[in-house]
Amino acid sequence: MRILLVEDEPEMAEALQGALHRHGMLVDLAGDIAHATEALQSRVHDLLLLDRQLPDGDGATLVAKARAVHVDLPVIMLTARGTLTDRIQGLDLGADDYLVKPFAIEELLARIRAISRRPAQIALPVASIGNLRYDFGAREVFVDGERLRLQRRQLLLLEALAYRHGRTVQREVLQEAVYGFDDAIQSNALDAHVSKLRRVLTEGGAHVEIHVIRGVGYLLREVANASPR
């Protein structure tokens, strides 16, 4: 799950990002409405966590902008504005949930899980490459019907490759899919993740291969004439 967290308090933002990372989520940070708007337009997110009291205005104004980009994007407001009027206003402005500060991270995680269980209005596709199946809605990988467990970055990398399987995916596209805005990226980090993903797929019996296209990126395709398991 890729989350856009809009929070201007550095300590709060760092604590939330760390907690969400530890639970397998990728978090992009924005400290104001302007940067959040850029983030919404440059990347696809699965959830918007939104503070209302931001340096350049009321964060609630972002809800309409977010839905213009992604009509089904879930929104949870995280704010100290906790009066009944504030909560009603936030929900009326389009938020799916409203959590008043201070809150326990366990409650936030529970609310994220609850929103994730809601059926999407648009069914997400399933990619089948050889005996590998990637379910984009559930973000799960199966080989011959058995679930294959991947680490978070491996899963994000495979998702980006599977969505465009049979086509070359540029390195820049893969890096955007795997890393958050604030992540420090070493020059060979992407290649290391690809190498680990190759090994996991091979050990899992997947009939797919990841080819390097020198100077451009990588390509995922079915292994020709693969032997059955």
Rank of each mutant, 00 (worst) to 15 (best):
G204V: 07
I115P: 00
A162S: 13
G82R: 08
Y179A: 05
T79D: 08
F103Q: 02
M77Q: 06
D46I: 04
R199Q: 15
D56N: 04
E106M: 00
D58Q: 01
R2A: 09
E140A: 12
F142V: 05
L161T: 01
V63T: 05
G90Y: 15
L73D: 00
I213K: 13
E11L: 09
P125M: 12
L219W: 05
L161Q: 01
H21I: 00
L220T: 13
H207S: 14
E14Y: 13
L201N: 04
A36W: 05
L190D: 05
A95R: 12
V216P: 01
I112E: 07
R118G: 03
H165G: 11
L49K: 04
A160H: 04
H21A: 12
V200N: 15
H211Q: 13
I185T: 06
V208R: 11
A184H: 08
V143P: 00
D97V: 04
A95D: 13
Q154Y: 12
V143W: 08
L78I: 14
D183A: 13
G18S: 07
P119L: 00
L155I: 00
R153N: 10
V69Q: 11
L93M: 14
L99Q: 15
R139T: 12
A66N: 04
G137A: 15
A184D: 04
V63E: 05
Q151W: 14
